[in-house]
């Protein structure tokens, strides 16, 4: 199983005191894939990734990393970029990359050569022997990313890798992830910026309030939200009633109507039906599904569900008390 699924989490839960940070999380990462781990701040992404690495242990459930519970032997093949960035300030980038590569089992000579190679590749060659304090924030972050992949890991776990990087460096990091993927590495990265996931991921896992709210491919994610067109009509015209006979559902949203498209329906069909219904059209905008919309929709649902659960629990407690 470790061969096909470098990471598998089954029924994993984690509490911090009375607060449940992760609830019955099930997900796996297929070998050779790029998986986006998405969720708003406080969704439980970092806690889940730390459990995946064995830094934290789950209170319930099982974690399998490269076919076994997380241990230092399997972690030799894993590169990890933590959410909280940090480097030894008095060391040079070359020393830091070499140090972490050696901790992962590389020889001193290989680790130094690899550090030089990576620093040159990322345009940091001239800063290789400078103290970290001399580097810009972006450069320091690059150094930390290089430390995570210096030992050529087969599995990379990156927690919010794009956070704090300017657009140029974000693009450089995307390129690096693609390069590592081409090399054969399996990659999981967490983010709350959907565009990165859209561009890079084959599979996404979404979390909200400690729960997994979605697990699937990008296409499946878009399908979950559904397609639609936005149609503007003259004030007072009831588009919902006008389109009902042709099988379209329309919902007024401010100054326009949102017309949902079912599996076999196209935006052209919706436009034709609207014209046939004699609607005085003022605008027509097909809505392309974006991961952001899927995310907002699923997170909102999860939060609503959470609120419902809380109210139900409170009510049950009240009944018991009575």
């Amino acid at each position: 199983m470790g061969e096909d699924l470098p990471l598998k989490m089954t029924g994993v839960s984690k509490w911090f005191g009375n607060f449940q940070a992760v609830r019955d999380l099930d997900f796996d990462v297929p070998k050779g894939s790029i998986v986006g781990f998405l969720g708003p701040n406080g969704a439980g992404k970092s806690t889940s990734l730390r459990m995946a690495l064995g830094v934290l242990s789950p209170d319930r459930g099982d974690v399998s990393l490269l076919g076994a519970p997380p241990n230092l032997e399997s972690l030799k093949y894993v590169g990890f970029l933590p959410e909280e960035r940090g480097l030894y300030k008095k060391m040079s980038p070359r020393q830091i990359i070499t140090y972490f590569a050696r901790l992962k089992g590389m020889s001193s000579r290989d680790a130094k050569a690899r550090a030089d190679e990576l620093l040159d590749m990322m345009g940091l060659g001239e800063f290789a022997r400078s103290r970290v304090t001399k580097l810009s924030k972006g450069m320091a972050q690059k150094v930390q990313i290089l430390s995570a992949l210096a030992h050529r890991p087969s599995f990379l776990i990156l927690d919010e890798p794009f956070s704090g990087l300017d657009p140029v460096n974000q693009q450089a990091l995307e390129d690096l992830i693609i390069e590592e993927h081409k090399r054969g590495a399996t990659i999981v990265f967490s983010t709350h910026v959907m565009e990165h996931a859209e561009r890079l991921c084959e599979k996404i896992v979404m979390m909200a309030r400690g729960r997994k709210v979605f697990d699937g491919t990008l296409d499946e994610a878009f399908a979950a939200l559904g397609r639609a067109v936005h149609i503007g009509v003259a004030e007072g015209f009831d588009l919902a009633a006008a389109l009902e006979p042709s099988g379209f559902e329309a919902l007024q949203e401010g100054d326009h109507w949102r017309v949902s498209l079912k599996q076999a329906q196209s935006s052209q069909d919706a436009l034709r039906a609207t014209l046939d219904a004699g609607a005085p059209i003022t605008s027509f905008t097909p809505q392309e599904a974006r991961l952001r919309d899927v995310f907002v929709s699923l997170v909102s649902e999860a939060e609503a569900q959470d609120l419902t659960d809380t109210l139900a629990a409170d009510a049950a407690e009240g009944r018991e008390a009575a």
């Binding site: 730390r50 690495l53 064995g54 830094v55 230092l72 972690l75 894993v78 990890f80 933590p82 909280e84 960035r85 940090g86 480097l87 030894y88 300030k89 972490f100 901790l103 992962k104 930390q144 430390s147 995570a148």
Partner: peptide, 17 residues
């Protein structure tokens, strides 16, 4: 204190017991 304030522990703990 340096390692705590520089937030290096997570990187270390995935490499050393």
């Amino acid at each position: 204190i340096e390692e705590r304030s520089n937030k290096i522990f997570d990187s270390l703990l995935t490499s050393v017991k």
